[in-house]
């Protein structure tokens, strides 16, 4: 459903992505692993139209040309949501307001209500803190809210940028279990992670990104066994 061909992105004269190809099928969990600065976040930002893709890049989503859409319409019209690195919550808004803002363009009141309840059932902590300012949440709760927000705003496909960052192992497992649950309800996930072991176990398929090039791809389980991947990303 998401198809990316020859994606190139430059920041000024520096090229961050040198023409990469990948796809995400309906209901799939796909991961892109790679070192710091390999271009993982840039890939997600290009797909969600936060950074411009260079000429010749082709990004399609269910046959629609993503380059015809602005960042807000990618979310509101296509249901493609992006949980950015570092969560980027609105700390001055309450938990509930953060979730409601994510429904800004939605008109289906009844479904919004059900989705809200679903978020609060997946992340019970958020329900308890719904009137609290997002800035006062702990790191784990903030990540839950960031995912909850993406859940509210479309959830055909979710792009996740380093959801494990800064989380203690137990919380991290909680977040990934919730993501699994969301995926099983039909949301495809494109996950970008530095924690390669976690990501490859979680995903059905994976890509390895190095200096703006995709160098390897395969099933998550296969990549875990790949000596090259083991040496470079799994600590040998």
């Amino acid at each position: 459903m998401l198809k990316v061909e020859n994606l190139r992105v430059s920041y000024g004269k520096i090229m961050a992505l040198h023409g990469i190809d990948f796809y995400v099928d309906k209901g799939e969990i796909v991961t892109i692993i790679g070192a710091n600065g390999a271009g993982k976040s840039t890939t997600l930002r290009a797909v969600s139209r936060m950074v411009p893709a260079a000429d010749g890049s082709r990004l399609t989503y269910n046959g629609k040309n993503l380059l015809d859409y602005s960042a807000d319409r990618v979310v509101s019209e296509l249901g493609l949501t992006h949980v950015p690195e570092g969560r980027r919550l609105f700390g001055n808004l309450t938990v509930l307001e953060n979730l409601k803002l994510a429904c800004f363009a939605r008109k289906d009141r009844e479904q919004i209500k059900r989705d809200l309840e679903r978020v609060f059932s997946i992340f019970a902590r958020l329900g308890e803190r719904r009137e609290q300012k997002a800035g006062t949440l702990s790191g784990g709760e903030q990540q839950m809210l960031a995912i909850g927000r993406a859940f509210m705003s479309g959830r055909k496909i979710m792009l996740l940028d380093e959801p494990s960052m800064g989380l203690a192992p137990l919380l991290m497992m909680g977040v990934f279990n919730a993501l699994r649950e969301i995926n099983q309800e039909g949301t495809a996930i494109l996950l970008v992670e530095q924690n390669a072991r976690l990501a490859l176990k979680f995903a059905q398929r994976g890509y390895v990104l190095e200096n703006g090039h995709l160098v390897l791809e395969g099933r998550g389980a296969d990549l875990l066994q790949n000596p090259q991947v083991q040496n470079a990303y799994l600590g040998g």
Binding site: A71, D72, V75, S76, P84, R88, L101, A102, C103, S153
Partner: peptide
């Protein structure tokens, strides 16, 4: 608060 990520909420 953070206008960069506002479009990611589907807000123009």
């Amino acid at each position: 608060f953070d206008y960069v990520v506002v479009p990611l909420m589907g807000v123009p």
